[in-house]
Design a protein around this nucleic acid. Structure first.
Lengths: 229, 229
DNA sequence: GAGACCATTAATTTGCGATTAAGCCAATCA
DNA sequence: TGATTGGCTTAATCGCAAATTAATGGTCTC
């Protein structure tokens, strides 16, 4: 198992590599984002530990570049910022877990192992239906050759649809995709998002996969190239 | 819907069960992990609320035992620890959501409901009677090879029939399938829906499975390929 | 054969969903 | 820090499918 460590703090670097090697990992050390990207590309990495605060290339940018190259090893983010926002941002951008500095060595090892375990069971990170190709890691969707420009909400709804094709999904369930917790009754968020999604889907590829089933919900049916919904 | 609550704090126990019962749930109360496991095993639980800090058997262990027994109802974890670690641990171990104490009653109810919505999509059961195949997950019905185009009401009635074949169902019971609350007397909704359903069933496959039992109700009998109703 | 019960169709009403636009909030940038 | 942008939210309107009601005719039971 090969671990890529991208960390500019020399002391922490040494600490990490000692711990990891002690647990039987091969370790690649990089001190900045550029170097990190080089290793990520040219070595067969199983898991990466990336510090967010890096010289030359920011940690988040590094993650984006890695995912852009379709490298899908799991990424553990190290962050000094303890703010909630920074964390979510990290996970949204293609990272799989994060750890706030300072941390206990055992916790880091536990998380690395957990990521490897999870990764071994994960087969497909891409879902393809018709002209649409969704990348769960990168959180992007290609419509034909073009990458769709989706908002966070549009993406969440489309992801749910593509993970549950040909299933009638009621609106309450779709609302669950958007908010952690929400029991609001009189809102038409879903209708609005569906409308925008349809527009974007149709724009690029005359593709009308979202059917309406009045009173029952919506259904994603990639076979509808003409659209009955 | 039956909820299992595993909580050792008597006061919180009472609070929870009051809330849940008020929302129309059946509630099983357990004060420790052992008791919880007993209820989980012997009752048909739809969703469980489990406190992590429990006497006799730790909440996490309870969850593990439940999952080991292949019981797959959704689990909501309550935790006093506010650390991210405890939460991740809970989710990794087979829980589906968590809530940090103290919490707002509405939030708990919202999450329980969200879990139930999510779970309802997991049952990939198909019910087949004669030429009809109903997919509970997709909420669609195939009549022969063709998918039936059903309205929300028609689907609800047909689903009930197919889940209770050869049983006489009176009209009041069918009305309950359509509305949450309804005490209306003089309406012929059911007759109208039955008529439309029959038409659609017959249209595609000359199939007349809905019998009328005058004064008693209706009966779905998939054996009637000629139709005695 | 009278009356209750049901089937069927047609007419009416309702309320869902589509769509648009304006308001609002937060993140980003100057 | 104030301005700007982009995206989420809310509201209002409109068309239409579906639900409801009503009316008529059929059928079973006693």
């Amino acid at each position: 198992m090969r671990v890529l460590v991208v960390e500019d703090d020399i002391e922490l670097q040494g600490q990490l590599s000692r711990m990891l090697e002690h647990s039987g990992f091969q370790v690649n050390l990089a001190a900045d984002g550029q170097e990190g990207l080089y290793y990520a590309t040219d070595y067969d990495i199983d898991v990466a530990i990336i510090d967010l605060g890096l010289p030359k290339m920011d940690g988040l940018e590094l993650i984006n570049r890695i995912r852009d190259k379709d490298l899908d090893f799991p990424i553990l983010v190290l962050t000094a910022r303890s703010g909630w926002r920074a964390k979510v941002q990290g996970l949204d951008s293609g990272a799989d877990d994060y750890l706030t500095k300072p941390f206990q060595p055992e916790e880091l090892m536990a998380r690395v192992n957990a990521l490897l375990r999870r990764a071994s069971g994960k087969t497909h990170t891409k879902i393809v239906h018709g002209p649409l190709a969704l990348d769960l890691k990168k959180k992007t969707v290609l419509n034909g050759d073009l990458e769709m420009d989706l908002t966070a909400f549009e993406y969440k709804v489309l992801e749910h649809f593509m993970m549950h094709p040909k299933v009638i999904v009621n609106k309450a369930r779709l609302v669950d995709c958007l908010y952690d917790y929400n029991e609001e009754k009189d809102s038409n968020v879903i209708e609005v998002i569906i409308a925008r999604l349809r527009k974007k889907l149709e724009l690029q590829a005359k593709f009308k996969p979202i059917e309406t089933l009045r009173g029952r919900g919506y259904r994603f049916n990639p076979d509808n190239h003409d659209g009955s919904g």
